[in-house]
Amino acid sequence: MTGRLVRRLLASLLVVWAVATATFFLVSLAPGDLATKLTDPRIAPAARERLRQHYGLDRPLAKRYLAWLSGVVLGDFGDSFLYRRPVREVLAQALPNTLLLATVGLCLELILGVVLGLVQVRRPHGFWDRALSAFSLTAYALPTFLVAAGLIWLFAYRWPLFPPSHMTGLLAPADPWTTIKDRLWHLALPAITVGLTGCGAVARYLRGALLDEQAQTYILGALARGASRSRVVLVHALPNAALPLITLLGLSLPFLVSGALVIEVLFSWPGMGQVFYSAVTARDIPLIQAVTILVTAAVVVGNWLADVAYALADPRIRR
């Protein structure tokens, strides 16, 4: 088991390297570098050349690749063209914000999905099952931007309970308690958007898995021994049915990160998605490369952690 996990981890590192290399060459080989992108005719050719030299664009490609790669390994992604600061600093600011939004959103998604699934299997094909099926299907089909816009309209304009955008209020908060409250208040709408758009998949999966489990003989056995229905569902069926949710979560990580892209842009949440969006719009090459690598690494590690968690949770795989 340990050997398999170690091999998976090595393979994951290979993936990160491959994505890093691909982004480097894709970006480097695309026609037109930074200096030619400055279309202002008043810039003298000599100044253009100086810019090239400053960003190291005049050196041969192989040399640039090696220098860049060794920098990346050491955590140095170069300077952002857009923010005029080291990429590392820009990302160090954005990453915690994305992690906060993603973690809270994911928890909401899981809680909502599990509750929906549990309510649905109380009486399969009953009224609540049908109604919630329709709900989770709609939640899945609605595009993220529509859900976000709907929430902003309802809870920021119609009934102004939550702020429509940004992560902090205008005024500097007085004490840590107010800071936390302010942060949570701003977090509400984006996190609910993550939860709403994702809970459908969890609920739909869990409903099917719970129904499958309930057809098993050990459920009948538990009922025969006099266990109550809710105990059978919660204690006997749910852990077994929920096991593959770990993998589902691991696989939904890329979707969470990319889904957060639209959400962060719409809510002006200063996270990785927002940074990436502005980097792509401004063709800030070092920043684009760094975010792509970092997100890939996060996703790869997330998948690996899901594997580890699965192995820990399922005694049949642990060995």
């Binding site: 290979l14 890329p254 792509t292 998948n303």
Partner: peptide
């Protein structure tokens, strides 16, 4: 299958955006 696993690990929308920005 290793290639498939690797491809699954790549965050889609990010790569899509990066690529479409340059192509």
């Amino acid at each position: 299958m290793a290639v498939v696993d690797a491809a699954l690990a790549i965050p889609l929308l990010f790569v899509l955006l990066a690529v479409s920005a340059f192509l």
